[in-house]
């Protein structure tokens, strides 16, 4: 009671709770360390019972629960949130690619909080006053841990998702200058409106920077497009022509051809070639000419 201000009268001594505040937490921590194996297993069982982390193998689960447990107890001991944040970020980075969801992470941390709280309850249940003080010390710390882990996880998850989207975007619409005045746009994967927009920006500015006269858009790797995207594609082709570039489309699947016809595109006015090789040959042929006219390209 030495730390208390002079004005506060010392509380009456608790008959069966000789532990003072400063010793509470260390005592709690050593209890959790002592029963580490049993508590960790109990926790893992609860996680499985709740159907959480099913994306992980038993080995991964054992490794992660052990390391989360140790970190958890360490944060209780030191109160250092920085270390916890660092750990939570690392953990998130490891488990996000495994498809772990936010509610699972929050769920397992809350389970651990409750498993440990129950263990403390069992240990101190005969000294109710002491139990109350132990839980008073434990609960705010435990909630802070749960909060920190959840926030770190969500942050990390958003960062990873953003990063993935950016890199997918960059990879998915590369504008490749194969030779002077010739661009190739190999497109792979599902083409949604956002990607279609990106494609337009990249292609049209690409025509300008590379002074392209011919563009080959290869859509062999695009399974299907909806009408909005098909429309966007056609507009991009027409806009390229207004900038003086001829567009050759290769790898047009029957499905996409059908969509184009549905939205009223006259396929005979589009320069479509079966495969990329044929498209490149046609491009060479066009580049042999000094003008882009006669076949309907490059006019407004």
């Amino acid at each position: 009671m030495t730390e208390r201000p002079d004005t506060t009268p010392p509380p009456p001594p608790l008959p069966r709770s000789p532990v003072n505040e400063e010793e509470l937490l260390p005592q709690l921590v050593s209890h959790l360390r002592e029963h580490r194996t049993k508590l960790r297993q109990e926790w893992a069982a609860r996680i499985q019972g709740a159907g959480l982390l099913h994306a992980m193998t038993p080995q991964e689960m054992a490794a992660e629960t052990t390391s989360v447990y140790d970190n958890y107890v360490e944060v209780l001991e030191t109160g250092s949130v920085e270390a916890l944040q660092r750990y939570a970020r690392d953990l998130s980075e490891r488990i996000i690619p495994r498809g772990v969801e936010t509610h699972e992470v929050v769920g397992i941390v809350l389970l651990l909080r409750d498993v440990l709280a129950r263990s403390l309850f069992e240990k101190y249940q005969r000294d109710f006053a002491l139990l109350n003080r132990v839980l008073d010390a434990y609960e705010p710390a435990a909630n802070r841990i749960a909060n920190t882990v959840a926030v770190s996880f969500v942050d990390e998850r958003e960062r990873v998702i953003r990063q993935q989207q950016d890199s997918i975007r960059e990879l998915s619409t590369p504008v490749l200058p194969v030779r002077e005045r010739l661009l190739i746009l190999p497109m792979i994967g599902v083409l949604d409106s956002e990607r279609a927009r990106q494609l337009t920006e990249q292609l049209l500015t690409g025509i300008r920077t590379h002074r392209a006269k011919v563009v080959v858009i290869d859509i062999t790797g695009v399974p299907a497009v909806d009408e909005t995207v098909a429309n966007h594609l056609v507009r991009t082709v027409d806009a390229s022509r207004l900038m003086g570039a001829s567009v050759i489309i290769t790898g047009l699947s029957p499905d996409i051809a059908q969509t184009l016809v549905t939205i009223g595109v006259d396929l005979s006015k589009m320069d479509t070639i079966g495969d990329l090789q044929g498209g490149l040959e046609e491009a060479e042929r066009l580049l042999g000419f000094s003008v882009t006219r006669g076949d309907g390209t490059g006019t407004m």
Binding site: I207, R208, R211, K213, D238, R241, L242, M243, G244, A245, V291, T292, R293, G296, G298, T299, M300
Partner: peptide
């Protein structure tokens, strides 16, 4: 804009 027959070029 329907494409008429006025030619266009880059620059």
């Amino acid at each position: 804009m329907d494409t008429g027959d006025v030619p266009t070029a880059l620059d």
